[in-house]
Nucleic acid binder design. Sequence first.
DNA 1: TATTGACTTAGACAAAGTCCAAGATAGGAT
DNA 2: ATCCTATCTTGGACTTTGTCTAAGTCAATA
Lengths: 136, 136
Amino acid sequence: MSDLLERLRGRGWRLTSQRRVVAEVLDGEHVHLTADEVHARAVDRLPEISRATVYNTLGEMVTLGEVLEVSTDGRAKRYDPNAHHAHQHLICSGCGAIRDVHPQGDPIAALPANERFGFVISGAEVTYRGLCPNCR
Amino acid sequence: MSDLLERLRGRGWRLTSQRRVVAEVLDGEHVHLTADEVHARAVDRLPEISRATVYNTLGEMVTLGEVLEVSTDGRAKRYDPNAHHAHQHLICSGCGAIRDVHPQGDPIAALPANERFGFVISGAEVTYRGLCPNCR
DNA sequence: TATTGACTTAGACAAAGTCCAAGATAGGAT
DNA sequence: ATCCTATCTTGGACTTTGTCTAAGTCAATA
Ligand SMILES: [Mn+2]
Ligand SMILES: [Mn+2]
Ligand SMILES: [Zn+2]
Ligand SMILES: [Zn+2]
């Protein structure tokens, strides 16, 4: 995820230890952590980091398009570092595990003109639900 | 929506004035109200109805499968009385208006087997985003 | 190494939702 | 028609998630 840090520096960001730690925590595949989960893991590396800074940093990364905000249930938002590869989500109804998935075709094409109510459509998010191998 | 009340009575529900009012407030098409919006409208008809009862009643209707819970943004959940006709949602990024829409085909079919991670998939929710005629 | 605007912090605040003990009542029993 | 009681409702305390602010700190440039 030092790609992310480099991109952020290129955008005029001060490179603070707090931001470095948030970026490190978000590194990986199929990562979809809540703000509080990010904070808990960040505290392991930088004990004095505050909740407010985690929220600020995540919000800025979302604004810059470097991190996606995912609202899966009505609970806490999740933060997804995989912002540069379009994908959808598959969620286990049992344990909440979230996987990145890549369906075929464009879901927008499945919506007929007479079902668009005059909207100009800009995107579609698909959430697949099911049971993972462990939960069956 | 007296269909709903009849179905609920058939399930052994006591028919209280509070439940009647919540069911009335949820009547209609393209209805996707938050719990607080339901409460505000319920209070117009039954001033002493409490927030707790609105939450309880909505939760029970969801459990019974008579009302759907829709989490569109990270904000409050919305309650959808259109539970017996499968549909998806189209949301205006400008004003938040929500329309029921019916895409062609089954979105689950678009997910290849090698993208299922061993999950047994039970459903897919699609949220289309765009701008409504008023917001363009 | 001095400067300073950007950054971080603790804690107050707000919105959305859950939970509980006490009181009220729908609807079957008499 | 009245009684009875399990079910329902209520206000308020509490939790979770998130926002905001004023005061202090520091990264980066000169
Ligand atoms: Mn993802
Ligand atoms: Mn709907
Ligand atoms: Zn699972
Ligand atoms: Zn609009």
